[in-house]
Every structure is written in C-alpha cells, then in structure tokens.
C-alpha cells in the first residue's frame, strides 16, 4: 500500500484540464491523434479523447503504441516484457500526435516512443501528455501537458490504477524499500 496522490475525482479533473489544454494549444481537435503508450497510456488516451469529444463534439482518433522493440535496455533485461499491439488506425502524416503515458520518469520510454512514431510515419508535431511527472529525467525530454508534478525519490514507485483494469481510479506513491 502507498499514499494516495490522486483520487478518482482528481484524476477526472486533471484529465479534463489536459483535454482543454490540448484544445487550446492546437486550436481545436482537427489535426489531433492521441496515441497511448502500452500499457499505462492506452486508457488515458481514450479518456482524454472522450473529454475532447464532449467539449468539441467530435472525438479525435486514438491509437496504441508498443515501444518494447525500441527500448534501449532490451539486451540487458533479464525478462522481456510481453509484446503488445501497436495500432495507429489513421495516417499520421501532417497530423499532430499527442503521446499519452501515465508516468514520466527517466524519459527513455518517451525517447523510444518517438523513434517508433517516426518509423511509422511523419507527424507534423509530437506532443506529450502525462498524468504524473515524477522527475529524474535522464534525457532532455519535457511533457507538454502534466496532470501532476510529483517530487519522488528514485527508488520510490508510482502506481497508476484505473477502472479499465478493474481497479478504483487512483495514483499511489509507494515509499517502500528499494528493490
């Protein structure tokens, strides 16, 4: 168990705000594609798309991106993460892609996601939305939309639990021992 950082109500509010920010910055939803990073970003991308749809009347397309094959630590890992689907249903060329992930940490996942996106097409712009930014960046990467900035120690764990995976919506900070 850990400390609740965001409860379900706060998550709802934060995602609604991000939806508004995306619309404001991009002057509407016309050119937007929301791409959730497997697995934590997938449901968040869908939720943000849903909120944008409520505000704008049209829901932007969403996609999923598995970055396993682009990780820079593949060879060093003892166990491989299971490969998930990459599915971007629309042409990304000349579109603005908003990458969505649950937690922004070292930045390596986002680096891999950007490489992967660029191999898949040529988006006009790539933006980044995250529910939690916990710091400790190892690469020069910054999120465009942040739900909550959360100062953490390196060994702590941030856990995002969502209804879509059978949990009550909440974000936990686990201050347990380094493992």
């Amino acid at each position: 168990m850990g400390t609740v950082i965001l409860n379900s109500h706060e998550i709802l509010r934060v995602l609604t705000r991000i939806a508004h920010e995306i619309l404001e910055r991009n002057e509407g939803a016309k050119e937007i594609i929301l791409v959730g990073i497997q697995t934590g970003g997938v449901h968040l991308a869908k939720r943000i798309a849903h909120f944008i749809g409520k505000i704008e009347g049209t829901t932007p397309p969403t996609g999923t991106l598995d970055i396993t094959l682009y990780r820079d630590d593949l060879a060093a890992r003892k166990e491989y993460p299971t490969l998930k689907k990459t599915d971007i249903p629309v042409d990304m060329n000349d579109k603005k892609v908003v990458l969505v992930d649950d937690v922004l940490f070292t930045g390596r996942t986002i680096r891999a996601a950007m490489d992967s996106l660029i191999d898949l097409g040529r988006p006009k712009e790539i933006q980044l939305a995250v529910l939690v930014d916990r710091g400790h960046r190892e690469l020069p990467i910054r999120a465009d939309y942040v739900g909550k900035n959360l100062p953490t120690a390196f060994h702590e764990k941030v856990e995002v639990l969502l209804e879509e995976v059978g949990e009550e919506d909440r974000v936990l900070l686990n201050r347990g021992q380094k493992n």
Binding site: T68, K85, S116
Partner: peptide, 20 residues
Amino acid sequence: LQTADSFKEVSTREIKKVPA
C-alpha cells in the same frame, strides 16, 4: 504465437523495421 501476432503489424508498416 501471441508475440508473432503482434509482429505481424510490423510487416505491414511502411518502414518494416524495428530496432529490437
């Protein structure tokens, strides 16, 4: 089989290559 199923998508991309 599950992993292969995910890899099928790679062969349909314009750039049919991943750096794994």
